[in-house]
Design a protein around this nucleic acid. Structure first.
Lengths: 200, 200
DNA sequence: GTCTATATGTAGATAGAC
DNA sequence: GTCTATCTACATATAGAC
């Protein structure tokens, strides 16, 4: 693995653990086993390297979520697969975490991958919920976009609760709670896997 | 207002805006209009002042939430009052934000007010949900603790979504989505305001 | 109680040798 | 491409005068 690659992966790790403000170029270099000169040769500076690392983390997260959200025959099953996926809640979300960083929010370039990731996730979840409503699996009164935002928020907020408690349990409770509510919003009629309208 | 007080309030504000790692003693002093000497006379150092500020923010938040969670005749109404309260989602939560800070999580003293605040909030919400179940307003299958964690998570996660988007709308969507699901879990029977068992 | 002086380390970056 | 030297500013704190 070349030096630029090691710098990016080190930056990804430190940004996840310590955020943008809490991550120094020096710390990235030490973790990557690279000198000052190397870093400033490959990247313009800390913001440039951080933006590169964040774009990569965002792409990885999205690919992972996209695959999970295809697994399952019903809307409830797909959402469940995503919410119950293996996680370490005490680490938090490597993308969502950046939204709390003042320097990231203040910079269009740094915020962009964070914004795009959650815009995509909410749309993706909304599509699944909409399919569930259209197929009769979920009650007609359920709003796909609102529900999708609530589900995405449960995950991000679950991280906050778990880290505050120093224990993963509140995260698991929040996920179970969300799925329980979603079940309450289901009609009890098993639905087809395909999007609405496809099976007559 | 005396100097110590100004230092605490300045610290509260900066911790909210920039987190613990992003807040320097110098910045606090300048905002408070106090010199180095004053700060180190009244407080042992940055962690001491920050802990004082965080305990105060936690107490304020808790008092505010406690009052709001009493307003309303049904569980749904009480939760609604809390979720729909006036907020600036782009600022985030002054307590929840600290849970993402590595130095806060690493220190027992700094994490304590954050942990206690959310432990209290989850219990408080769980009590309301339990009342709703006991009174027949909410379905018997709804788990009070899980649902409470989900509701608290929706708020905290809503902040993440709003800040990521640079727009409050995702927060509002998440809140509406959560209330929509909670309505789906309600039986449609209006319930008494008092805790279960009190009205025969 | 508040001020100024001082101290050590780090943040973030540039310059130029190799 | 990588290294070392160097730079300005800030982080965090202590010492001691007033």
């Amino acid at each position: 693995m070349d030096t630029a690659e090691r710098l990016i992966e080190s930056a990804q790790q430190l940004l996840w653990e310590r955020g943008y403000v809490g991550t120094s170029p020096k710390a990235i270099q030490e973790l990557a086993g690279a000198g000052q000169g190397s870093m400033y040769h490959h990247f313009k500076g800390k913001p440039d390297l951080a933006a590169t690392a964040m774009r990569r983390s965002a792409a990885e997260l999205r690919a992972q979520a996209d695959a999970l959200l295809d697994e399952g025959d019903t809307a409830l099953a797909r959402v469940g697969t995503y919410l119950l996926r293996e996680r370490d809640p005490l680490r938090g979300c490597r993308v969502g975490r950046m939204a709390m960083d003042p320097d990231v929010i203040a910079s269009g370039t740094l915020r962009e991958p964070v914004r795009d990731t959650f815009a995509w996730l909410r749309e993706r979840l909304a599509g699944i919920v909409a399919d569930g409503v259209a197929s009769g699996e979920l009650r007609p009164g359920i709003d796909p976009r609102d529900t999708a935002a609530a589900l995405a928020a449960v995950v991000q907020g679950g991280y906050v609760l778990a880290r505050a408690a120093g224990d993963r349990e509140p995260f698991d409770q929040a996920v179970r709670g969300a799925l329980g509510l979603l079940e309450a919003a289901s009609t009890g009629h098993a639905a087809p896997a395909a999007p609405a309208g496809q099976d007559g």
